[in-house]
Amino acid sequence: MRGTIFVELIKMAEETFGEDVVDEVLEKADLDNDGAFTTVGNYPCSELVKIVMALSAHSSISPEVLQRKFGHWMINHFVENFPAFFEGKADSFAMLESVDGEIHVEVAKLYPDAELPVFETKRLAPDHLIMTYSSPRPLVEFCHGMIEACLDLFSQSADIQRMAVPTPANATRFDIRLTA
């Protein structure tokens, strides 16, 4: 995984829990590199999971809730650092539909070795979108948080239902219906 994900998780944790707590948690997490991450590095997802689990153990906030909060954090990071991806998008569905065909195309150009998740979308009605997320990494809750944050960004609310997809592992179908 790209190092920027790790750097942003640590920034979120420091803002939430404080630098001293994060230092202590990283020390206890038994990380391969002792918690030294750079934005340009590549690191195994297992290290991210270790950090989330250690933060969960320290805070008593479930790993699932932490991943969702991190999804919200990352949308804000992307808006600040990559505003062009959000320009011209009329609503959250247009944004979500652009992930694979636009955003990931650009990411792949910059980082040809990146293992990107796949987002397949199908709009069933103006207020109903199905998004299938497939990834070799166990980050479904993170994805769910990013969907929620995307809806928030466009001042929309929705009922989001999830259904596991039999293959590949970690694939989930999000059934997203806008609400008034």
Rank of each mutant, 00 (worst) to 15 (best):
L153T: 05
T4S: 15
L151S: 01
H77Y: 13
A158P: 06
T179W: 01
D20F: 07
S157V: 08
Q161C: 12
W73I: 12
T167S: 13
D32C: 06
M146W: 04
S60D: 15
S157R: 13
P136A: 00
E80V: 08
E87K: 12
Q156D: 04
T179P: 05
Q156N: 05
F70V: 07
R177D: 02
C150N: 13
V25H: 10
L55W: 03
E120L: 11
L139T: 03
F70T: 07
T39V: 15
Y43L: 06
M131H: 01
V22R: 08
G18Y: 01
E87S: 04
N42E: 11
M53K: 15
E148Q: 07
M131G: 01
Q67S: 04
L139R: 06
T38S: 10
Q67D: 04
M131K: 09
S62K: 07
L124D: 00
M74V: 12
I75N: 06
N81A: 08
A84R: 09
T38R: 07
I130M: 13
L66R: 08
C150M: 13
G88T: 01
P136M: 02
R162F: 02
A125D: 09
V107G: 01
D20C: 05
F85N: 10
K109C: 09
I61N: 06
F154D: 03
M146L: 11
A108L: 15
G101W: 04
Q67H: 03
A149I: 01
L66Y: 04
D175G: 10
T121A: 02
E15R: 15
G101S: 12
M163I: 15
L116E: 05
K28N: 14
F85S: 05
V79T: 06
T38W: 03
V22S: 04
D100E: 09
M53H: 13
F86H: 04
V49K: 11
Y111C: 05
F174R: 11
V99M: 12
M74Q: 09
L26C: 01
Q67G: 00
V22Y: 02
G35M: 03
D100H: 08
S98W: 00
E80R: 14
E8K: 14
G145L: 07
H104L: 14
D113N: 14
A13K: 11
A164E: 15
T16D: 11
Q156Y: 03
M95N: 03
V165Q: 09
P112M: 06
D34C: 11
E141A: 08
T132F: 00
M146H: 01
A158C: 02
F6Q: 02
L9C: 12
E120K: 12
P117E: 00
D127F: 00
F78L: 15
H72K: 14
K69W: 10
L110K: 13
A108W: 06
A84Y: 02
K122V: 00
F17V: 13
S134H: 00
L151K: 04
S98I: 02
N170W: 07
A108D: 09
S62Q: 05
E102I: 04
R123M: 05
L48I: 08
K109L: 14
L178G: 00
V79E: 05
E148L: 08
I130Q: 13
R162Q: 14
H128L: 04
